[in-house]
Structure formats: C-alpha cells, structure tokens
Design a protein around this nucleic acid. Structure first.
Length: 301
DNA sequence: GGCAGTCAAGTACGC
DNA sequence: GCGTACTTGACTGCC
C-alpha cells in the first residue's frame, strides 16, 4: 500500500499544470510551458519522496494541447531527456504513477469523432508514461463513458471499442466507477468481457451502488489486476459537509479514513486521496496508516 | 495587483 | 432543440 494525491502540490509554490488559451498557442509558448511543467513535476516528486508519499497522479495538462491538431511540435523528442530523468527518479524510488484524462475521453461515444479524439488523448497520456520508461503498472484511468439512453448497448459499444485499441494503450488502461452511471459491478462485468482492470472509487461507490459493501468487492477487484498491472489502485474521498452530494471534501476526516483502513483489511492496494487540500491530507492519511502492515514508506536513504 | 469571467474537448437533463 | 450544470484550476482581460 502506497498513499498519494493527484496532480497538484500546494506547498511548494509551483505547478506542473500550467497551460494557456488555444488562441495564444505558439510553439514558443508550448515549449516554455512544458519546460516549466516538467521542472515543477520533478520538484513535486522530490517533495513526495522526502515525505513518503509514493503514489502520484500526473496532470493531463503536463503538455497542453498535446492531443489537439494545433500541436504539431515534436515535444516527445524535444523533451526526451527530461522525461527520462523524471522516469529514472520514479523507478529509483519505487513510485506508483497514474494519469486520468478528463471527461472528454469517451471510448463508448457513438460519435466517431469523439471516439477518435479520445484515442488521440489516450495516445498522449500513454506516451508520457512510455517516455519515462515506466512499466505497465503505471496506469491511465478512465470512466466507462456515457449511457446514451441505452446502458446495455453502451456497454456493448465499450467492449467493441476497447477491443479495437492498440495493445500499447490496452496495457495501461483501467476503468473506474463513477457516481451516476456505471457502478463497480458494471465495471467488473466489463472486465469479464474485456480483461480490463477495475479501479474502484470508494466515494463514488458510496453514492452509486447495488447495496454491496465496498470492502466486500475488493477481492473481485483484485483479480482484475494481473501481475504486470501491479496491485489495485483505489481512489478515496469523502463528502464535503454542506455542499452538493458528491462534492469532494476540503480536508480528510481522520476518523473516516481510519475506519476505511480498518474495514478494508487485509486487502492491499494503493490509495489516491482525492481531497482538495492535496498533499496536506495525504500526509495526514500517511500518519493514520503508520503501523498498518500493508504500508510502504519508500526506500530509506 | 486584484478580480471576475472564461476556457478544446461531452453528456445529461430540464424546459 | 436549446441552454445549463457538472467541475476546476489556471489564464486573460479589465479595472
């Protein structure tokens, strides 16, 4: 078990998610933005290593417009050395890495254009991980997609479209339950038909389920991850009091997290804390998990 | 320097 | 059919 947080660190004064408007796109602007993002990504990873946070989600904004037709610059070659350097650091310290394209990546979209743009984005995300030389335990997580008025048909379409993907993408892709449309059980059913690993989001599960206890699903989830996929990843969050149902909490609720660790024993998985104050709550979580036999704190130096 | 409005992309839903 | 919410940090233009 490793503990981590997504994309942004609020303590170190830089961001790896710097971007710009499409209207201001120039090759120069892209180069300087990516350069800055990579420098910051390395700083974040160094912070994480120093604090024992060994799970991290790399932002999709690392290379802005990477999958947009406007971007013809060969950033892969231009920044090859920087990617390799960061990748070496990740491997050296035993980090687990994920990426998460946002809502526009929809494999089961009936619209061919949407599907093609989704592929382009997945190619980009996979390239980032490949350029870093990371093995297939580094994952790209997506949701199943839309329902389009017919859920069984849309699940069939997911199965078909997934089958058409390049193995390079398939080797990294995992599906996650969402809070409105597709549950963990739906994802497990899709695993049966495609072999795709299932990443469980405990908070989404609490909002949308078929009455199953989260902990009871962990064994079924575990077996969807093969040796080359690593142990399962799990997204964890809790409800922000007084906000819309489904709003992610501003900070971790220690007692809830302690309970979560207790209930899920002895299942082993890496936990991503989708909590708004980012590394702050991740550090609290690490503190709470201290002493849990599942926890990996990183190689001592 | 600070603030409010806006931003590549899609879907679901209410009217 | 059309507009809006969803979700969210960062950018951009305006004061």
């Amino acid at each position: 078990m490793r503990i981590g947080y997504p994309c942004i660190n609020r303590s170190i004064g830089c961001t790896a998610s710097s971007t710009f408007r499409l209207a201001s796109y120039t090759e120069e602007r892209l180069k300087e933005t990516v350069k800055g993002n990579l420098v910051c990504l390395e700083k974040i990873l160094r912070y994480n290593r120093a604090h024992g946070l060994l799970f991290f989600r790399i932002t999709s904004d690392l290379v802005p417009f990477a999958s947009h037709p406007v971007c013809t610059f060969p950033w892969q070659e231009h920044f090859a050395e920087e990617f390799q350097g960061i990748g070496a650091f990740i491997r050296q310290h035993g980090f687990r890495i994920s990426m998460h394209p946002d809502q526009f990546v929809l494999l089961n979209a009936p619209d061919e254009g949407v599907f093609q743009r989704s592929i382009a984005d997945l190619v980009y995300q996979v390239q980032v991980l490949d350029l870093m030389g990371l093995d297939t335990m580094a994952k790209v997580q997506i949701h199943v997609g839309g329902v389009y008025g017919d859920k069984p048909l849309s699940m069939d379409r997911f199965t078909d479209k997934y089958g058409q993907l390049d193995p390079v993408i398939k080797n990294r892709l995992v599906i996650e339950n969402d809070e409105r449309l597709y549950t963990i059980s739906d994802c497990l059913a899709l695993h049966e038909r495609t072999g795709i690993p299932v990443i469980a989001d405990s908070f989404h599960h609490a909002l949308h389920n078929h009455g199953e206890r989260f902990a009871d699903l962990l064994e079924s989830i575990r077996v969807t991850w093969k040796a080359q996929d690593g142990i399962p990843m799990v997204d964890y969050s809790s409800q922000e009091p007084g906000k819309r149902v489904g709003a992610h909490a501003e900070q971790i609720v220690p007692e809830e997290f302690r309970q979560f660790l207790h209930e899920t024993r002895p299942a082993d998985f890496d936990i991503m804390l989708e909590i708004k104050d980012k590394e702050k709550s991740a550090l609290s979580a690490l503190d709470i998990a201290r002493g849990d036999p599942r926890l990996v704190m990183g190689k001592k130096r």
